[in-house]
């Protein structure tokens, strides 16, 4: 199954009214599915990165259910678009997407984090169909993506490499080695997406080691920079489509997605300590109810 929307020209405006029939409702539903499945899976492991997934849920949804050229029946298809996660600790939110799309039977996720499971806190490309690169050590992914784009160019293939980076990840030096390299090699089909949720383990990113002015940094490294509200799924889809389908300029694109860590669960949104945690079952049920209630309000 080739994602049909991925081959369509972009016609959507960046601001999508709620309840319109342009597909954003479905993407919003998938983002809610990502959040509720994340709560379900972390309940199995008893610890996980809820809030790191919640800030990225709309981005996952827009990429996998709309923008990327993928075929779940052929996870190794060389012409597919690629998605890499520098913030590999959000993989628990990507697994349900891959299962939902048919890369593997959804039931496999019931063994999440069990002894010998393919599915752990960080993604393993050798064990999970649909994972384009393993990660876990922050700072490598943009380099991996640059290599893929160089390989695609050599092989004469026209695919796009999307690399999601955490905002704390901007503190890793290798990110900037990769940023220099992508601009130098004119890799305009490399798209970095910075999940700017503002928090890392030890606190606010700007308190730990500040990264602003972030857009200016990427511009200074030779990238085209776009900012977007990372929870407006229509706008996210729009900027991702433009980055993928835009004219070949030789300039890579960095999307700074302004997001809320823990988005969708009110008490996580206001408590940065939720980077790594565990919800007791009753709290998990309340969180799921809040996420679903927010979706039920859409278009009503």
């Amino acid at each position: 199954m080739v994602n049909p929307a991925a081959t369509q020209p972009s016609t959507t405006s960046a601001t999508s009214p709620p309840g319109s029939d342009d597909g954003t409702d479905r993407l919003g539903d998938r983002a809610a599915f990502i959040r509720t499945e994340t709560i379900r899976l972390i309940e199995i492991a008893k610890v996980g990165h809820y809030s790191s997934v919640f800030s990225a849920a709309e981005i996952f949804a827009a990429l996998y259910y709309d923008v990327m050229r993928i075929d779940p029946a052929r996870p190794d298809w060389q012409d597919r678009d690629r998605f890499l996660m520098g913030k590999g600790h959000a993989a628990v939110g990507l697994y349900p997407v891959l299962g939902d799309l048919g890369y593997f039977p959804m039931g496999l996720l019931d063994g999440y984090a069990h002894l010998g499971s393919s599915f752990g806190d960080h993604p393993d490309m050798t064990k999970i169909p649909g994972i384009d690169f393993s990660s876990g050590s922050i700072g490598h992914a943009l380099s991996n993506g640059v290599g893929m784009a160089l390989g695609g160019r050599l092989a004469g293939r026209d695919f796009t490499v999307f690399v999601m980076l955490g905002d704390g990840e901007m503190q890793e030096g290798q990110v900037w080695e990769a940023a220099l390299s992508a601009a130098h090699h004119r890799l305009d089909r490399v798209v970095a997406i910075v999940d700017r949720n503002g928090f890392q383990l030890d606190g606010g990113v700007d308190d730990v080691i500040g990264i602003e002015p972030l857009a200016e940094k990427w511009r200074a490294f030779g990238w085209h920079v776009v900012a977007v509200d990372g929870h407006d799924v229509g706008a996210v889809r729009q900027v991702l489509r433009e980055a993928k389908q835009g004219p070949r300029t030789g300039i890579p694109t960095c999307i700074i997605a302004n997001t809320v860590k823990g988005k969708g669960v009110s008490y996580m949104e206001t408590e940065p300590g939720w980077h790594l945690g565990y919800l007791e079952p009753a709290d998990g049920e309340r969180a799921v109810a809040e996420i679903l209630a927010a979706r039920n309000g859409v278009g009503a």
Binding site: F133, S143, N144, G147, M148, G151, L154, A155, S181
Partner: peptide, 21 residues
């Protein structure tokens, strides 16, 4: 040419290998 970016070079080589190179 990767320049003086050895760690980036190794990670990028891994990315290259996924494309059949």
């Amino acid at each position: 040419q990767f320049g003086i970016s050895e760690q980036h070079m190794v990670s990028a080589a891994a990315g290259l290998a996924t494309t059949g190179a």
